[in-house]
Amino acid sequence: MNEPVISVANLSYRYGTFTAVDAISFQVQKGEIFAFLGPNGAGKSTVINVLITLLALQEGSVIVAGHDLQRDPAGVREAIGIVFQEITLDRDMTAWEILEFHGRLYALPKEERRKRIDELLALVELEGKRDAYVKELSGGMKRRLEIARGLMTRPKVLFLDEPTLGLDPQTRIRMWEYLRDVNREGTTIFLTTHYMDEADQLSNRISIIDHGRIIATGKPWELKNALGEDIIYLETADNDAAMQILDGDERVRSVRRTKRGLLAMVHGDGTQLLPALLDGIHDAGLKVTAVNLKKPSMDDVFVHFTGRELREEGPARHMVRRR
């Protein structure tokens, strides 16, 4: 079952003295959708650029689709498909020409090329735009055309760098559907994103990356569970005192300050725990002014794992494993 398509060990990348990627290791299994989630400047694009051979491998070892990046970059190139962060389409070429050009770049035989173009234009629902110039296509259509292009060579892995950047919400959801279809047909997908919902909804596994390091890796629900089952938000007359009370309560997994209140991550069902916790605060003579109860979101996960004030030892760096 475990069959890594991408295997990265101790990958580092430096721009001069600045370390953009700091000794990261991860594996992407065959058939999964794997996401790198992190803020802008976290090192996501650098990792992807190294993996797709646009940046030279400086340190570490990378194996993509069975090819060693250091020894056989050409093998890696032939085995992968890429959708770049910005639109990389010639405005003055037609959709068909874009795909034809790509097929020729990868030396696909003519017959296969033509057949593949028809299939892919159908897959991304652009048959009607076959002879339309790129400049006449909408943002979503361009993105779909790029996905089609990335799939021209039937890659073992499709790399996508921020695939839905700048798209409207509806188009994004459609794009996810296309990517799920592509994945169902057997293509492993590696994507980077700084959208929490994208990582959450689309991917099977996520690595949270910040300052060039992987801070946590896991399935979306595993990452969320790492925070506790529910999150309770409280505003009280004296947040410091309330924090002490909550901190001492064994049902509370951890408490964190926010600008105006407290976030308590709790073990167990929050709907049951909330009244009891409120009673405790009330008994201490503190007035509660606002309450909210929610399930952890990817945002909470992100803040949890990247938050500076999280623990004394600073940003936690651990793997979340299924147990």
Binding site: I52, L54, A74, I82, F84, E86, T88, L89, Y106, R149
Partner: peptide, 13 residues
Amino acid sequence: NWGLMREILASPL
């Protein structure tokens, strides 16, 4: 400048 070169440079060409 428009990023098109990346497609070419990342290809086996």
